[in-house]
Amino acid sequence: MSPRFFLSYTGVRLPLQLVEELPEAALRNRNTWFRAEYDAQGTLIRVEKIVYGEVEMTHRYTYDSELRLHEAIVTFADEEPQVMRFSEASA
Rank of each mutant, 00 (worst) to 15 (best):
F34S: 03
E20P: 00
I50D: 07
L69S: 12
R30T: 00
H59E: 06
T10Q: 10
E71P: 01
L44H: 12
E24F: 11
G53F: 10
H70Q: 13
R60H: 07
V47Q: 07
A91E: 08
T10K: 13
G42C: 05
T75M: 12
V51P: 03
Q82M: 05
F76V: 09
E20M: 00
V12T: 08
A72V: 01
A36K: 03
R35K: 10
P23Q: 14
R13N: 02
T43D: 14
Y63G: 02
S90T: 13
R46S: 06
L18I: 09
A89G: 09
N29H: 15
V51M: 08
E21F: 03
S2I: 00
S87E: 09
S65L: 08
L67F: 06
D64Y: 07
E71V: 06
M1N: 11
N29A: 12
A91Y: 03
P3N: 13
Q82W: 00
F86H: 04
E88M: 07
G42Y: 07
L14M: 11
F5Y: 14
G11C: 01
L18A: 13
P3C: 07
D64N: 15
T75Y: 14
L14Q: 11
L44F: 13
I45R: 15
I45F: 09
L67C: 06
Y52Q: 05
M57H: 15
E71H: 04
S65E: 06
G11E: 03
R35V: 01
R35I: 00
R35C: 08
R46G: 02
L44V: 09
P3H: 10
R13K: 04
T32G: 09
Q17E: 08
W33H: 11
Q41K: 15
S87T: 07
Y38F: 01
R46W: 00
E80Q: 11
R85F: 02
M57N: 14
S65P: 01
L27T: 05
F34I: 02
T62A: 12
E56K: 15
V12D: 08
A36D: 04
S8R: 08
Q17S: 15
A77V: 07
P15M: 12
F34D: 01
E21V: 04
R13T: 00
E24M: 06
R60T: 02
R85I: 00
F86D: 04
M1E: 06
N29C: 03
F5R: 02
R4P: 01
M57I: 05
M1F: 07
E88C: 10
R4E: 07
Y9H: 13
E88V: 10
S2C: 06
V12M: 04
L22V: 00
G11A: 03
T62W: 06
T62C: 09
P23R: 13
E79S: 11
E24C: 05
L69V: 06
L69Y: 12
L18E: 13
S8Q: 04
M57E: 14
R68C: 05
F34C: 02
L14Y: 11
R85D: 04
A89L: 07
A89W: 04
F34R: 03
T43V: 12
E37W: 03
R68K: 14
S2K: 14
L69W: 10
M57G: 13
A26W: 08
I45C: 11
V51H: 10
L22N: 04
E24Y: 10
G42T: 05
Q41P: 01
D78M: 09
D64P: 05
D78L: 04
T43K: 15
S65T: 07
A89R: 13
A77W: 06
Y9T: 10
R68W: 06
E21W: 05
Y61R: 06
Y9L: 08
V19K: 14
